[in-house]
């Protein structure tokens, strides 16, 4: 279904940064893949490349037998809205639309009939527990509700491949469980292929297979065998070497100091001269 072949991604800038290096990956049909890794390891970048939002610097992404780097911009856009569904880390809901309008947006672009739109939106909203907020505006709903709206939008057109970037990042454990079960159900019942980025081993345990990324390259891979609880425990065990939250913060703090070196230098020299 999805094949990532030797993909590299270099962010050009003052200092070029290699976010993905020669990464290859194959996901068969109807598989639910989880992606884990420390912050900044290139998970979102991978998802962007897979979802054709971003172009890889080298390598190929083949979805359902189609080589995405051979398509032009227009074809890509049509491909995205018909075959792919996304849940973004930052939702990307449209402010001027209501929740319902946000959800049906991909359908309106392709001229689906109003009746069909309504039928689908109600079915999905029931499932995700957002039926009562359909007529609200995006600034009137909570982070978790936004996330579920984004999920509803991602799946309304029955995409072949669903890509989700931390879909449970803003949810409490109960809501997260609902969302994950919805995704799992979509995967089992509708046969959708899925790729989900997450930091949470609990969430990852819903996947059939979890891939660990570090510094833009594959690091390790775990497949589910046995019950979800067992898988979850296995995943918890693997997380620390990749850096837990503490690590993340320390990394962040150190990085930050380097980033602001000149500022600090100026500050300290000023303090020095004053004393």
């Amino acid at each position: 279904m999805l094949e990532v072949r030797n993909v590299s991604k270099v962010y050009e800038g003052k200092i070029a940064y290699q976010a993905l290096s020669n990464l290859s990956l194959t996901v068969p049909k109807e598989q639910f893949v989880g992606i884990m890794g420390p912050s900044g390891s290139g998970k979102t970048t991978l998802l962007n490349v897979v979802s054709t939002i971003d172009k890889p610097t080298s390598g190929q992404v083949i979805i359902d037998g189609k080589e995405t780097n051979r398509m032009n911009k227009r074809q890509l856009a049509l491909f995205r809205r018909r075959e792919l569904g996304f849940v973004f880390q930052d939702f990307n809901l449209l402010q001027t639309l209501t929740v319902k309008e946000n959800i049906i947006f991909p359908l309106t672009l392709d001229n689906v009939s109003v009746k069909e739109q309504d039928a689908r939106v109600h079915r999905i909203a029931e499932k995700l527990g957002i039926a009562h907020i359909l007529n609200k505006r995006t600034y009137e709903i909570s982070g978790g509700q936004s996330q579920r709206t984004a999920i509803a939008r991602a799946i309304i057109h029955d995409p072949k491949l669903i890509l989700a970037d931390e879909p449970t990042g803003n949810l409490d454990s109960k809501a997260a469980k609902d969302v994950l079960e919805t995704l799992q159900m979509l995967n089992r019942e509708e046969g959708a292929t899925m790729m989900m980025v997450t930091h949470d081993p609990q969430a990852a345990s819903y996947c059939d297979r979890v891939i660990f990324i570090k510094d833009g390259a594959l690091y390790r891979e775990l497949r589910k065998s046995g019950s979800r609880q067992m898988f979850s425990r296995k995943l918890w065990a693997y997380c620390p070497p990749l850096g837990g939250r503490k690590m993340n913060f320390r990394q962040f703090a150190v990085k930050n100091v380097f980033r602001n070196m000149r500022l600090y230098a100026a500050y300290f020299s000023a303090a020095h001269s004053r004393s």
């Binding site: 856009a77 049509l78 995205r80 996304f86 973004f88 449209l94 402010q95 947006f105």
Partner: peptide, 19 residues
Amino acid sequence: EHDRVQYRAITKLGLTEGE
């Protein structure tokens, strides 16, 4: 600025340049 954010979001969802 507002438009940029919005159109970036829509383009990700699959809006063609023509649209």
